[in-house]
């Protein structure tokens, strides 16, 4: 099913789609673009290449309450909280959608599957959006990702000459286009091929990198690489493939909620044990954990490197200690380019 809509009509489309549940869009929030639920008056920005924080927020929210507790006397009541609203995620770029597939492997494929994630994943209709012009931080080509197409999207959207072309690829996608009804026009005559997009070429050679790293846990490269790391969590929080979380209670002794929220392996606190021992006590151990997880541990289990080249860590790390620097330091660079 192929449809089109003029870009100036989009606010009407947002309104119609948001009527049935949260509609996540790249939204201009002051100086930044964030993937957030749309509300009347919010300014969607489909031209932004990448949101400051990835679209994983839709599937693995930064904060997710899953139970309520009530204590009275000796009694403790634990009541599950359901979060299962149908959601539309409109404007997910191919890199971010590929990253969601990487999260699927951890949260769905690996036993036991995660029901909170599964419900969100199943109830979300994803509208992929092809990239027209990459920003200089984009390097998804290095991971074989085609910025012009997001396989796995329920609807694939392209921006073209003041139009948005929409192609439904799944039943969920068709239902979404049906929901929009008359706002959309027939697009069967429109050409749906997005132009080829070339992203930054850092000359990375990822072939065999995970295998090589298996023996490099104690490598001296780690003694240098971590040095500039400030120990903040920017890289992990903006990253679409980082998925670590914490569980915490919010409330008082009488009642409250339990939620899970994003956490970061870059924090010392992350692995600090109650007795005081910390297996990853220093920045070196933590930087190693982050990069080894992306480049060796995850690939060992799931057969692919846990990076999609979205470039957010290149853009956002305050000291420019990013995954490209790590890959190069670890020998994942084409020799001729050195």
């Amino acid at each position: 099913m192929k449809k089109v809509i003029a870009r100036e009509k989009l606010p009407e489309l947002w309104k119609s789609l948001a009527a049935k549940g949260p509609l996540f869009l790249p939204i201009q929030e002051g100086p930044v673009v964030l993937f957030q639920p749309w509300s009347e008056g919010a300014e969607a920005n489909l031209d932004a290449v990448n949101t400051a924080v990835s679209a994983k927020d839709v599937f693995l929210p930064r904060e997710e309450t899953y139970l309520q507790y009530r204590c009275s006397g000796n009694q403790l009541e634990l009541i599950p909280v359901e979060n299962a609203e149908p959601v539309i995620a409109f404007g997910v770029h191919p890199c971010d959608l590929k990253a969601v597939e990487m999260l699927d492997k951890v949260y769905l494929d690996q036993e036991p599957s995660d029901e909170l994630y599964r419900q969100r994943r199943e109830k979300t209709t994803v509208v992929g959006l092809s990239c027209r012009e990459p920003d200089p931080f984009c390097f998804c080509n290095e991971f074989g990702i085609n910025p012009a197409d997001a396989p796995g999207a329920d609807v694939m959207a392209h921006l073209k000459n003041g139009l948005v072309l929409l192609e439904a690829r799944t039943d969920k996608g068709k239902a979404l286009l049906d929901q929009a009804g008359d706002l959309l026009q027939d697009g069967s005559d429109e050409k749906f091929e997005a132009a080829e997009v070339k992203t930054a070429d850092f000359g990375l050679n990822l072939e065999g990198l995970p295998e090589n790293l298996k023996e490099r846990f104690e490598d001296p490269v780690w003694d240098e690489l971590y040095k500039s790391c400030l120990g903040c969590g920017v890289c992990t929080y903006v990253c679409p493939t980082c998925y670590c979380f914490d569980v915490e209670d919010f409330g008082h002794e009488g009642e409250g909620q339990r939620f899970r929220c994003w956490d970061s392996c870059m924090y010392g606190h992350f692995t600090d044990m109650a007795g005081g021992h910390n297996p990853r006590a220093g920045r070196k151990e933590r930087v190693r954990q982050r990069f080894m997880h992306k480049l060796q541990y995850y690939p060992e289990t799931f057969n692919e490197i846990a990076c999609v080249g979205c470039g957010r860590c290149l853009r956002s790390c305050p000291v420019n200690l990013d995954i490209v620097q790590a890959i190069k330091a670890l020998g994942g660079e084409t020799v001729e380019q050195r």
Partner: peptide, 19 residues
Amino acid sequence: LEMRMKCGVGKCGRCNLGS
């Protein structure tokens, strides 16, 4: 072994030794 743990099911990311 003992480690700090939050999920118990290999997802929250704290208690790994390699993979």
